[in-house]
Each structure stands twice: as C-alpha cells, then as structure tokens.
Simulated scan of single mutants.
Amino acid sequence: MNCDRFQQSFAVDPSLSGKLFDLLEITFPGLSSLAECGRKLGASWEAASTPFIYFHEGIAISHVGVVEIPFYIMGKRVTVGGIHAVATRPEFRRKGYYRAVMNEVLEYCDKLYETLVLSTSQPEFYLPFGFRVVAEHIFKVQCNSTGSTDGWRQLDLTTDKDLRLLHRLLETRVPVSNVVGVVQEKAVFFVNEGSRPLYYAADLDAIACMEIEDTRLHLFDIVSTNIHPLSEILVRIPQFIEEVVIYFSPELLNTENVQAFPGVIEETVLMVRGKFAAEKEKFMLPRSARC
C-alpha cells in the first residue's frame, strides 16, 4: 500500500465522478440514478461532497465521502459532517484500504466538525473509528380523521414552477424539530427524497414527505417556514386516517397523546462521533437528512 493522500476534487478532475460511481454502483446499486436525480433538481453530489478515494492502477477501489449538513440540535444550530457512500470493491476488502481512507477522513473532519454522523445497516464497520450507535424513536398518534378538503397536491418537479417552489422552501425552512432537525440543505434531501412523491399544501405553504398505507399516514418530513399542527395536515387529507407514524421528534406539531417507540428507518441505525446534545432524547433524524 502506498502513502498517497486520498482527498480528491471533482472540480480538478472531471473524470472523477464516473470513476467513483463505477465503484459505488457495486455496493449501492441504483445510487447513480439517485445522484443524477439530484443533479437535475439543481443540487449535485459533486458540489456537496468531498471525496476521499484510494486508487489502484487508475481504478477507484475504496471511497469515503464527507458532506456538510447544517443541523439544529436541542435548539442550537450546529454544522455537522456527514459520512456517506462508504464503499470498497469486494476483491480489495480486508486489506487495509478502507481503514487508510477513513483515518484520513477523520483527520480532515476533526479540524472542521465537533460532530460526525452517518446512518448504516452495518455499525460494526464504524465502531473501531470512534462512532457509536445513538438510539432513535418513531412516534405514533391514534386519531379518527376523515379530512374535509383535498389540500395536498403532488409536486411535479419537471416543471420550473414546482422546482422553484421546492428550492425556495428548502432555502428558508425551519427545522422540523428543535431536538434534531436540518435547515438549508438540498443535496442530501434530493438524493433521499427527489425520486419520491412530495406533496404541497398552498394555504400552508408547506411540503410534506409522506406516504399513506391503508388508514395509516407515515410522515417523514415537513419543509416549511412554519411547522403547522398535525391537525392541519390531517384535515387536508380527504380519507380516513386512524394512525399517524412520525419519523422525527413531533414537539412542534402541537399534538397530544403521542407514544414513542424505539425504532429504525429503512433498517439503518444512526451513528455519531463526537458531541451530540440530543443523545438522551427521544428523536429520529428525518429520512430526508440521512447520509
């Protein structure tokens, strides 16, 4: 193993993106399409992520990416480093390449951030580097909502009007929770949510990341300059809803009888390195902000 440094630059090397995604598709099939969706929506992977890549004979064999995310944690704005898209080609695993890249990433990040986060289904890969699993919760509310108006329409992000609307609200949004929330972030949001349905209520000037399963509403994020009560969200859904499952701390939704349960989202756990003031609280990092 040579002693080359691993930090790369998409701006300096235009061919770097293709080499990287050739690697990432092996570990994360379909990620190239999600990244392309983000580019089309106006927030490119290449502009947001700092790549650390180990090359062997011109081929990218191991990568760790760093993206900067503005969080709100316990009501305080904190700039956090997000570790993402960690991948090594199968034939080069268990040879020290990932460790070498990660050690340089941590040396880089420790100069910039007091807190690093990542989400993963394989926490054992990160425990040796000082990351720890932080427990998360989902929140459930029982209700009997029939809705009185059809107040949510699905955004069409192929139109300039709806795309401008989404950019405006992402730029001006308040955190969905003051326990753990995110503001003024686009690239991670677009990768996670850009290919999923997004719904807009004009009178609330709010975008909801939500899904309805039979009589259950799954609420993943709200992008707005004001977080409205849950009752205002429900009244604009013209069908019977008997349970709401919320994937973020719901203290701003002004609703009662909320039950919290330990849980995960998409089979991933949240891992943290460094300070994290909300560690003992009941919360979940929204799906839209997970990297």
Rank of each mutant, 00 (worst) to 15 (best):
S148I: 12
I222F: 12
E232P: 01
F129H: 15
T120A: 15
F6T: 05
I237R: 11
V191R: 13
A85L: 13
G130M: 09
E136L: 14
L127E: 04
E171C: 11
I265N: 05
A48P: 02
L157F: 01
I246G: 00
Q7V: 10
H63T: 06
D150L: 10
A11I: 14
L20A: 08
L24Q: 08
V235G: 01
Y199S: 08
V235P: 01
D156F: 05
I138M: 15
L24W: 11
V180Q: 00
L157E: 00
T120I: 13
L155N: 01
T215G: 06
V12I: 13
F10D: 08
M271Q: 00
Q259A: 11
K186W: 02
P197L: 10
L169A: 08
F248E: 03
R236Q: 13
I59T: 10
S224V: 11
P238H: 04
P90F: 08
Y126G: 06
N2D: 09
L112C: 07
Q142L: 11
Y97D: 03
V12S: 14
L165P: 00
E251N: 09
V86Q: 03
E256W: 13
S9R: 14
L24H: 08
G42F: 12
M102I: 09
H167I: 03
E91C: 12
V86E: 01
L31G: 03
L165W: 01
T146I: 02
P262E: 02
